[in-house]
Design a protein around this nucleic acid. Structure first.
Lengths: 343, 343
DNA sequence: TTTCCACACGCAAACGTTTTCGTAAGGTTC
DNA sequence: GAACCTTACGAAAACGTTTGCGTGTGGAAA
């Protein structure tokens, strides 16, 4: 038994036709009870499992959803995948995951690969390069071939499809507000370069919060970081001798780097300076001090995205022409890095 | 064009046969130059892509490798996946990832699902439950159906197949040795319950190192933790007033928890007590103090595992009856948590 | 004895490819 | 003009399923 057993083999062995075997396995009344039992016994014995590939070909659907993310080694994205898997498995779908590694080309290749038969639909967060390049032909193309696409987190406004996002600006505003309410007035922000959509949105939220409190926006309080791998030196430079009482970092890593730098510069968090992050990952939870942050609820995003996709996949064909954008609520997770010290 | 275009459609449109179209697209000399160009132009226009499912069915292989891991939201496993993806993509393979969530049942279901046509072979790290249950029928079964399996990290000795592991005992010995060489003598270990293979092996390595230094093993220096989520209270209890000068934790989280607990108990790391971890993840790198640890080189493991699998997949059939076990070297990553304080 | 009807099963098409082989049309050779 | 060879293409099988429909067999009804 070095090969998978097929209907044909069973049929031959039992000296009946393939259709008889197929029907017998499905308990069709067309087949006599006797034959049914014989076939089933034989099938169990040889551990018969219908070939998914053949079924996919016949049914013209794969029961598989493709997920393409910019990075696989990334806590937030893996939580999203967790959510997707959860509902996918519930509904009998398989999940196939590819990472674009933030490369446009790899995103296109992966998408075309999956689109040519491997997946029925997509859940996608676009690569940095794609956002920079503004080339979305691969997405449009897959959609025009009848495969639904759900964009999440790093979405594209120009593409019309289902989307799952958080309100980045609002989240950032909440974060900034929190700093303001614990008494901070001079708040710096560590953000990304503008073409990263979420970075820009978070910066906007920060500015909005300041405005609401009538605090003038100050250019020298804003640092846009390009190279995340060497952010520490950049941050050190930026923070040196700066007269601030709080830092809002648009992601975990910036927050942690900031705290390290501040420590080196002899300042204590949260006593001298409060720090708030974005994204509730491993670091936020376990760092000392633990980080106050904005949770994006990645798993929920995955769940919603998967639901949207499956709805479209199983929807009554042309009825599902409307596209929905789901906004997941963020929430403030209060921890030590912004502890109110004086009450 | 709400549907994927097929050879048949092109053939009909151009009033030639399906075979002609197929051959023309492959530049067969059988077809006149004129027809070839016409067909190709048409195919490009309609964005024709051969249907993978049909190809898989015909070729009896999917060019897909299935990866099943216990947890998807886990830094080490994602680095392994990264490695797998790297070589898979190079060799024209697709990667499909499922998580078992440490559940035996889900592992079986995922495996059977992928085995029935979706993948040509497997890269697998078994679930905790599977290790506990010692039921490996699903793995044996897949192998007996001609699909190669490569086990990694959490392997199973009883199953005969290719394996990629680190020498956990040796790594633990290295870790313990490091503590000894920086002058520690009373070394506690935070490990897992015994049925987790890697935990047990690491404990063995720890004991081996002690023996080599003629240090008696002391029962009260060993803590076996069952519930990782509430490890902190357990560790706190264990460490209270204990006369030790070092802690070896078999994973990142235990190490971090230990440091927190120690801080609460008024002890400084590394000044009063040294702490060493295992696995070089995000926390180890960014925690304060940064953690000295043993790197498992997850990406390398993934690369080796994928290579082993693809070799078997593309090997000259029956020649590849031998099974190999690749041992990836661990390495000591020296950081602050074990800094030598007196020289 | 003839007619009819369940019953139990097989045939064949379809999904989209690739590939082997067969063959018509036209040209070349003697 | 017959025999033969290219050239250019088509038919069909195969991969493993599912399923609508056709059909042979036997027994019951008339």
């Amino acid at each position: 038994m070095k090969q998978k057993v097929t209907l044909k083999q069973i049929a031959k062995e039992l000296d009946v036709s393939i259709s008889t075997v197929s029907k017998a396995l499905k308990d069709s009344v067309e087949i006599s009870l006797d034959t049914r039992q014989k076939v089933k016994a034989f099938a169990k014995l040889y551990n018969y499992k219908p070939n998914n590939i053949a079924l996919s070909l016949k049914n013209r659907k794969t029961k598989t959803i493709g997920v393409i993310i910019p990075e696989i080694v990334h806590h937030f994205f893996t939580t999203v995948i967790g959510g997707v898997e959860k509902v996918a498995n519930e509904k009998g779908y398989n999940v196939i995951i590819c990472s674009s590694n933030n490369s446009f080309d790899k995103e296109v290749i992966n998408m075309e690969m999956l689109a040519s038969g491997s997946a029925d639909g997509f859940i996608l967060s676009v690569a940095k390069e794609t956002q920079l390049k503004k080339d979305y032909h691969h997405i449009e193309e897959t959609m025009s071939q009848g495969m639904p696409v759900v964009l999440f987190d790093r979405i594209i406004d120009e593409v019309v499809c289902d989307k799952v996002i958080i309100d980045d600006a609002k989240g950032a505003q909440t974060a900034t507000n929190h700093l303001l309410t614990v008494g901070c007035k001079k708040i710096a922000i560590l953000t990304t370069v503008d073409y990263i959509s979420v970075g820009k949105l978070r910066t906007n939220g920060y500015l909005r919060a300041l405005r609401a409190y009538d605090i003038p926006e100050r250019e020298e309080y804003i640092l846009k970081i390009e190279d995340i791998d060497n952010c520490e030196t950049e941050i050190s430079e930026f923070l040196k001798d700066k007269d601030i009482d709080a830092v809002f970092a648009v992601n975990e890593l910036f927050a942690v780097a900031a705290i390290k730098v501040l420590n080196q510069q002899g300042k204590k968090v949260p006593d001298d300076i409060a720090v708030i992050g974005f994204t509730d990952g491993i670091l936020s939870k376990h760092f000392i001090p633990s980080l106050t942050t904005i949770s994006q609820h990645g798993e929920d995003m995955g769940i919603r995205a998967a639901k949207l996709l499956i709805d479209k996949l199983e929807g009554d064909d042309e009825v599902t022409e409307e596209y929905r954008t789901v906004i997941i609520d963020t929430s403030l997770v209060q921890r030590q890095s912004t502890k109110k010290t004086k009450e």
